[in-house]
Design a protein around this nucleic acid. Structure first.
Lengths: 347, 347
DNA sequence: CTGAAAGCGCTTACAG
DNA sequence: CTGAAAGCGCTTACAG
């Protein structure tokens, strides 16, 4: 903000430029450019003189300037919810690997699940003229991106679709996964099943709730209002939801949790609970197999999610201009014990 | 003369420039610049005309060009080992928050524990003229960075110090932590304690081994060669080390693990082992408290590590030119059960 | 094989 | 209050 009164600012730390190299080698600018970029058309002798000047001066090409002239920045932006969330780690890494394979750098940022911060970050990346953008949206209205997309910023949404605009999206089958997980609990004898999910603004939260509802309906089960809780994934809120569901006159005998953070909190609560409660959680979590009981989960493949999104992005960057696509990746139920606990009455 | 040559190669997707805005508003370039940057010295009426042209054209300032002229890119690079490793998540996020507070973007990359890839990545970031660099080094020789640092790229190493150059470093007290953890096992009656750590090229691996050795020496215990295993943290290698240590004629009764990945594999092995073996691991891991027994760990504060490093970086960027500093953050022993198991003979 | 000129999209320094 | 000129460090298009 207030970086007003800086001195005669050392520019890039007073680095030598091609001009300096040219002067020292006694050649023209273009010749230096040729040597730096390994282009043909330089005699070995001239090349050597230039190389010596480069080494002596410690010259390193300023890609920032190069990029301005070339029109592509060879960088992409990835906006996710929280860099610290272990779920996004493999996704982030997968995007990076694809970017790297295409010679692009990755600019990263967290929206902190705040739509305004998401927009601010996305537009900052557009101002930097990233070639493309991969966004895990926090908000549900992305019309602010329309002029950018029209101007040529390739954009792929991942994990959650864009809101109110039509854009590429790579998603996990949230609805199908939640439906399968809930059906799994029903198959093990449960009739009163709770659902604790993320905020209703978030697409996946609604989809997973839908899957839960569908499975209950499939089995002819009516859902009690008290069995459903959507909200922030902060431990506090989740704990209260668990207490309410288990403390009711007709308590739930099983819980389906909407994502990894919710699951972790619920596992912690259930470990301290006196009677066994069944649990199936969306997202796999580390060490879930070593708990007693192991945690049964609906696993999604975060790395494939990221890789697929990045590949689609570079596909667009290569000129693909067909209709926006929506890729939905399957989930996988991993039974480890917690989801196979039977309700008290049925034992 | 204007847009003739443009059509062949869409530059930044044919975005309007300040020149276009100036032409449309019928003003000079500098006036547009004033409006875009909220500078004073524009009559309300002129300002309005310019703003209308901006809106009509969908103009967004090209920060990439701005940055070239300004001499600072308002971006920093963070090179870590693996974006997917949950240990680095909080560190990454903490760096991002500090960068954000300073108006800088974060360019991220993984070295994959490969010194060559680290160098390649670091130099690519230097070529982009990031203002500063935070590096979790994979290699042990950073002399390749000397010309860059001399040229003005602020650099802070985190988690591990630089090799063969003098540079700022923010570290955890690996040696002290490992010493305390090993002493904890000794205090619980163990005499034969194994150490499974990372590759000896990695500074923290050596430091932690040193802490282990020191604690053993403090207690007058001699270390058997078979009790120490350093190498890649791949599950395969760690499993073999565990099998060897537990299968020896005089098997170890406790193990100290050198980092989170090693710990996870060892926990998995010990869960399947017939007799209880004590365990203290370096780095905290999620759900460690819910396992039976809970995993006793030496926790380091990854977020503080990242925050401190980033603050030091911006301190340098603000002009601090004093001697390189080395900050060492304390670790914390968290007893949860696995480290308090007594050896068979002592029970 | 080699290089001078123009230009990428902005900001700086200066003049009116 | 306003704008023309020069320049950031490179690449492009072209001429010698």
């Amino acid at each position: 903000m207030a970086d007003t009164a800086r001195r005669s600012e050392p520019r890039y730390g007073n680095r030598p430029t091609m001009k300096d190299v040219a002067a020292r080698a006694g050649v023209g600018l273009k010749t230096v450019s040729r040597v730096v970029n390994g282009e043909a058309g330089v005699t070995p002798d001239t090349g050597r003189r230039v190389q010596e000047a480069i080494d002596a001066l410690g010259f390193r090409r300023n890609d920032s300037a190069r990029v301005l002239r070339k029109g592509r920045t060879a960088s992409i932006g990835l906006v996710l919810e929280d860099l610290a969330d272990p779920f996004y780690g493999p996704l982030n890494r997968a995007v990076e690997e694809v970017a790297r394979a295409h010679g692009a750098l990755l600019i990263n940022g967290s929206s902190a699940e705040d739509p305004e911060r998401e927009q601010e970050l996305v537009l900052a990346l557009c101002a930097r003229r990233v070639d493309g953008l991969i966004v895990i949206p926090a908000g549900d209205d992305h019309r602010y991106l329309e002029p950018e997309i029209k101007a040529g910023v390739a954009t792929v949404f991942v994990d959650r679709p864009a809101g109110r605009i039509d854009a590429d999206a790579v998603l996990s089958d949230s609805r199908g996964g939640a439906r399968a997980g809930t059906a799994h609990l029903i198959a093990h004898g449960h009739r009163r099943i709770g659902f604790i999910g993320d905020q209703p603004r978030i697409h996946t939260a609604i989809e997973r709730l839908g899957g839960y509802r569908a499975a209950m309906a499939d089995a002819g089960l009516v859902i009690h209002d008290d069995w459903v809780s959507l909200g922030p994934t902060a431990p506090r809120r989740v704990e209260e939801a668990v207490v309410a569901m288990l403390g009711a006159p007709d308590p739930v005998t099983a819980i389906f949790t909407g994502n990894n953070r919710v699951t972790v909190t619920v596992v912690r609560m259930l470990a301290a609970h006196d009677t066994p409660v069944a649990l199936v959680g969306f997202d796999d979590i580390e060490l879930a197999d070593l708990l007693k009981p192991g945690v049964t989960v609906i696993a999604q493949d975060a790395a494939t999610l990221g890789r697929t999104a990045a590949q689609q992005l570079f596909h667009r960057l290569d000129g693909a201009a067909d209709e926006p696509v929506r890729v939905v990746l399957p989930t996988r139920l991993i039974a480890r014990g917690s989801g196979e606990i039977r309700p008290p009455a049925a034992r």
